[in-house]
Write a protein that binds this DNA or RNA. Structure first.
Lengths: 237, 237
DNA sequence: CGTCTGGTTGATCTAGATCAACAGGAGTGG
DNA sequence: CCACTCCTGTTGATCTAGATCAACCAGACG
């Protein structure tokens, strides 16, 4: 956990436009900036822990963060991936409930902390902020219900392919040959945790979709050989 | 779909305290009441349909409503059960997205409709309303993520037992012999849809937990023979 | 009556879990 | 430099929860 005061401030934050703070005045932004704390964190570190009481919220400036739920038997699942421009932990703060998940760093990330008092302050002073939180929560809810529905109706294979397409939307690019490509930011183990599956099953699945010519895995590099067929199989959703 | 203007009005609505409208003034309540439409609906009817554009929100005055998601292959799942005192459809309305689920009546229900304009109006005039929606959304999100996590980490059997406990919390009572009891408000088919399983599997599961002496099923009547063992198996969550 | 719908049971099949072995780095420490 | 140990990932053999397909039963209802 490294402090990095120099790099960022809220008013010129490249991701502010996608956060709850987009409607703040220059004045308010300065206040936000004065009280925020910014950290560079690495894989294996945890922003907050399931079960802890919330003391503020966290803005992900860059990097990839996973929200992990662990049950009483030690079964563990990744509920959601969050990347730059999203705030996490707002639900626990605003509902005064303990965190339902832990937020763990998956790739090196810059994370800003905003303590409870400044958040309440902004909520009280600028009605737009509450609106933004509401919109954010509704969006998260709809995504969560979508994931839930998928988990109830689709096989691991289909959810795996869906995940691959989501990753492409978020991280995809065309390589030097013009092939659609993703550099996988997570481990096989974490793919499994996202799908409620075992790592061995993911290995076999990867093998299979490779043999079928859908995707080509080379370590962490994925080539999307036949994106149409993938889209078609998952039903374009 | 039957109109029933006589029975209810918002100011004396027995469930208003649990809705977004709890902070409204008498004046505002009257306005709400004038524009609302109240209906008595029966099983098989649908409040709104997945894919439609939202034109307002619905308050469930009494009864049980299920939110159903159907995917492109016709796989169907019940995402959530809603009973009296909850509003449904607010997410679609406030995010201007089409409904992600259909809302179907499971047991005879009184449902009130509030059209878009009155909702926006209340949101604009009374800041508490937005706050309530935010709290509601956060609560729904946390429940949805909980369900999702369970679906990723637990077997159908455990989720079935969990559902039985949820039903007991909502509908349970002690019968004449002092035994904890529930009158099941839904079909086997619907239990299956709630768990992402097949009805046959639910039948077998019921048979099994009966043979094990955990629960006793008599048509729609459930006796909780050994609640401790059930609680222990699902881990008290 | 026959016809439906909801529920149960049996036989069989399969996606994915589980258990075990092993291979390839990447440190780390001598 | 090698030996050693972690850790991630892959593969094989086997097992099992739950799906699927089919038959059948009971009550509701025209």
């Amino acid at each position: 956990m490294t402090n990095c005061k120099t790099t960022h401030n809220c008013s010129n934050c490249p991701t502010r436009e996608t956060t709850e703070w987009r409607d703040l005045s220059e004045n308010e932004l300065t206040r936000l900036d004065e009280t925020k704390r910014s950290r560079l964190m690495g894989p294996g570190e945890t922003i907050y822990f399931q079960g802890d009481q919330a003391d503020g919220i966290y803005c992900i400036q860059s990097g990839l963060v996973g929200l992990r739920y662990v049950d009483e038997d030690g079964n563990s699942a990744l509920i959601r991936l969050c990347d730059k421009g999203t705030t996490v932990g707002y639900g626990a703060l605003l509902s005064k409930q303990p965190y339902a998940t832990s937020a763990e760093i998956l790739t090196p990330s810059v994370v800003c902390f905003l303590k409870r008092s400044i958040v309440s302050d902004m909520l009280a002073k600028n009605p737009k902020v509450g609106e933004r939180f509401l919109q954010h929560s509704i969006k998260d809810l709809s995504e969560s219900e979508g994931d839930y529905a998928r988990s109830l109706t689709k096989t691991v294979r289909l959810r795996f392919l869906h995940l691959m397409m989501v990753l492409y939307e978020r991280l995809g690019y065309l390589n030097e040959n013009g092939d659609p490509t993703v550099e996988l930011p997570i481990l096989r183990r974490e793919i499994a945790d996202l799908l409620g599956a075992q790592p061995e099953s993911i290995s076999r699945l990867i093998r299979k979709v490779q043999d079928e010519g859908l995707l080509q895995f080379n370590g962490k590099l994925i080539l999307y050989c036949d994106m149409n067929k993938v889209q078609q199989e998952i039903g374009i959703t």
